[in-house]
Design a protein around this nucleic acid. Structure first.
Lengths: 204, 204
DNA sequence: GGCCCTGGCAAACAGTTGTTTACTGACTCC
DNA sequence: GGAGTCAGTAAACAACTGTTTGCCAGGGCC
């Protein structure tokens, strides 16, 4: 028996935990975390309200759990983008495509992050901010290793990384709220903007 | 008697309306609109719950009213920024200073916009999006009139304007959540980013 | 001076909320 | 196979929610 095979006991617990997270994620498409009720979630899952406490202390706790899994997938996205070696037209095209694909595949997660980044629950806000800063650091490290950053101060590299991360977040939000079929236009604008930033970088 | 002098009747009504808006604004510093209760607001104002309906249909309605007054002040801010003639170092410094001052002076309004821009109330979200797009158009018009935009397509000018507006919003949000005394660092980063964008523009 | 208008009130409505309690029954483990 | 663990239950709790009703007092206006 491999060490990560769970007993039916623990497996069942994880399944309802997952169900709670999924139900919350679904309900959060049309409201924000601070208005999401505990009973509302358990009702969707089909479980007694008290069962909620077997998994989370309160809604804020569940929110933080959602932040973690949302950003885990985001992290994969960043790594895919940064895997490219240089700052080129193809890299820009690929980045925007990766973002668009991510939004398509993880729509609920992205919406959750956009909504709760400045939302009403402090713990969740702080968890998202901390994680985005970590990503910024990661991007900065990758940028710093590139040829185009020769002679740049550490602060300037970090500033550029911040610009990229912010732009990525804005693009993802815009894609989220795009009218059906309007994603192409947004992606096109995003590519132009990245190109402009790229030129600014070359002439720093 | 001048035509905009109100009777005590109407004046009193406006005063409680204002009190409702202010109370909501205050309560929204620590939660989001979709979780803000009608009774909660009237309780702070010291008025009966039913009185609320004399002024707003529901909380979403009050939210839209807040959007309007929030963006009215934002509009003034944009006009102050765009009053400068060219794209220069001083213009960048002044823009960032104007934004910082605006955040200081209208903290609650800015927080409201940041929070509800992607928040849980559709009507409010749409009102904010529409207004920000209008601002983008305005910025684009101002940019298009500048010398530096000679030969630019309308779409490219609009794309640049979008980049500026997005950057401004991100900066305002960052200032809002900055640790006390940390505003200087954020303003500094914002200036560098604007400078980089400006270089990209010159070498388009 | 008297009539209308209306912003605000008190009370009652049926639902909903988060949280605690004591309990059950299936899984785990020796 | 028997004892112990624990995810999930049902029920009750007080507190709160948005909304409707009829009513009142006082300003606006002829």
């Amino acid at each position: 028996m491999s060490s990560n095979t769970l007993g039916t006991r623990q497996a069942q617990k994880l399944r309802t935990r997952r169900a709670l997270l999924d139900a919350a994620l679904r309900l959060l498409e049309e409201q924000s975390l601070s208005s999401l009720g505990l009973r509302e979630v358990t009702r969707v899952v089909g479980v007694a309200p008290a069962a909620f406490y077997r998994h989370f202390r309160d809604m804020g706790d569940l929110g933080v759990a959602l932040v973690e899994e949302s950003l885990h997938s985001l992290h994969g996205m960043f790594r895919r983008i940064l895997a490219g070696q240089e700052d080129s037209e193809e890299l820009i095209d690929r980045s925007v495509e990766v973002v668009a694909e991510h939004v398509r595949a993880h729509r609920a997660h992205v919406r959750f992050l956009a909504r709760e980044r400045h939302g009403g629950v402090r713990a969740v806000r702080e968890a998202i901010a901390a994680e985005l800063e970590r990503f910024g650091d990661e991007v900065a490290e990758a940028l710093g290793a590139q040829e185009a950053s020769r002679g740049w101060s550490r602060e300037d590299v970090r500033m550029l990384a911040g610009l990229y991360v912010d732009h990525l977040v804005m693009t993802a939000s815009a894609l989220l709220e795009a009218a059906p079929g309007g994603e192409g236009r947004i992606a096109d604008t995003a590519r132009r903007q990245l190109r402009l930033i790229s030129r600014g970088r070359r002439h720093w």
